[in-house]
Design a binder for these strands. Structure first.
Lengths: 194, 194
DNA sequence: TATACAAAACGAGACGACTCGTCTTGACGG
DNA sequence: CCGTCAAGACGAGTCGTCTCGTTTTGTATA
């Protein structure tokens, strides 16, 4: 029986940070799959039980580490031009997906496919909060008549961001800034001949 | 050194089929991650080496099994109405993604995130051949003036299919047939106010 | 056509290396 | 004195390789 209480009051912040840093470092060097919990503990100079006391799995550690690592997310910009603002934010995502460091994120999403608990924490910690900023910006744009009034905003968000994730996870093509332009062009102007 | 030659001429088709069937059955029952190669071998009444002789990994076995399982892909329909044809094909995909059996596909894509060889075989065996049928249909539609002439067809394909994969892999929302309608509506008519 | 033979695949399972998540120990600190 | 801590032992399970002895397959020969 694992009646670990894990009272945050007693948490050692020094170890906490060391674990997150060690996890990111090892995953950067050798990938998420080949990084064992034992190795993270050793690298962090920490007992393995200390990791399992505070996180349910290796993936959960990296979700927190990735979240902390990501820029403190300066809320979605609002220059008045929704197309330009979307482009700026999507280019940031596209560049991140192209960078080597994103492969840890990629692998964590992969692990989530076989572990519902990981899927939950990825969705709630990494995806949902960032989607929310985008939704707010789109709401403003809709009020200003820059996008159709009859759309569901979550549908719009997925339409434009999904191609980036599709390429990240299926590896069809790289996610270049130019592709962001193409996606937005198609999504805004539509596929019908003009 | 593993100098297995594995000449297909000597392949035992009885075992071949038994392995694919056993793999699908066990993954259906307990998931891909919890299904070991030993278990597949036992279930198929086969030596483990027989599996490793013909496939490089568990994931590769399931890619072949999933590919064989999928309907013999009656090429993309062409009724003259590209929007209707896309809807029909996408609804099939959306329904598959909603069905329980798709979780094996989902997990294999997950495993591919940590194994480039698996990613390659997923892309080449499962994704590319099916994308090709769609591309041909879109080419015909473009010739007939049903979609803009200035688009890259692969961009169009990803724009409309990516939202389904996004939901499958991130688990944001279910992929209902109604959502297919929404996606096509947004993609064809565009986001700009009319 | 029938027989003989070599090569390769076959079922079964042993093997070492590794990882998992839990459990134990004794020291430390508020 | 309590809970956390570092360290590491532990059993269970998986991986991919290797080794048995047997059976199947394709081909050459009579």
């Amino acid at each position: 029986m694992s009646t670990e209480s894990a009272n945050p009051r007693y948490r050692n912040e020094r170890s906490h940070k060391a674990i997150l840093d060690a996890a990111l470092k090892l995953c950067r060097e050798q990938g998420f799959a080949k990084t064992s919990v034992d190795a993270i503990a050793k690298e962090a100079g920490v007992g393995k039980q200390t990791i399992y006391r505070w996180w349910p799995s290796k993936a959960a550690v990296l979700v927190e580490a990735i979240d902390r690592q990501s820029a403190p997310s300066p809320d979605f910009p609002d220059t008045g031009d929704v197309l330009a603002d979307l482009r700026d934010q999507m280019v940031i995502v596209a560049r991140y997906f192209q960078a080597a460091q994103s492969s840890t994120y990629r692998e964590v999403i992969g692990a989530a496919q076989s572990d519902p608990a990981t899927a939950q924490v990825v969705l709630n910690t990494l995806v949902r909060p960032r989607v929310e900023g985008c939704r707010n910006r789109l709401e403003q744009a809709r009020r200003q008549g820059q996008i159709r009034a009859d759309v569901v905003l979550d549908d719009v968000i997925e339409l434009i961001y999904a191609p980036l994730y599709y390429r990240l996870l299926l590896g069809t093509r790289p996610t270049t800034p130019e592709q962001v332009e193409v996606i937005l062009n198609l999504a805004f102007d539509g596929l019908r001949p003009r």
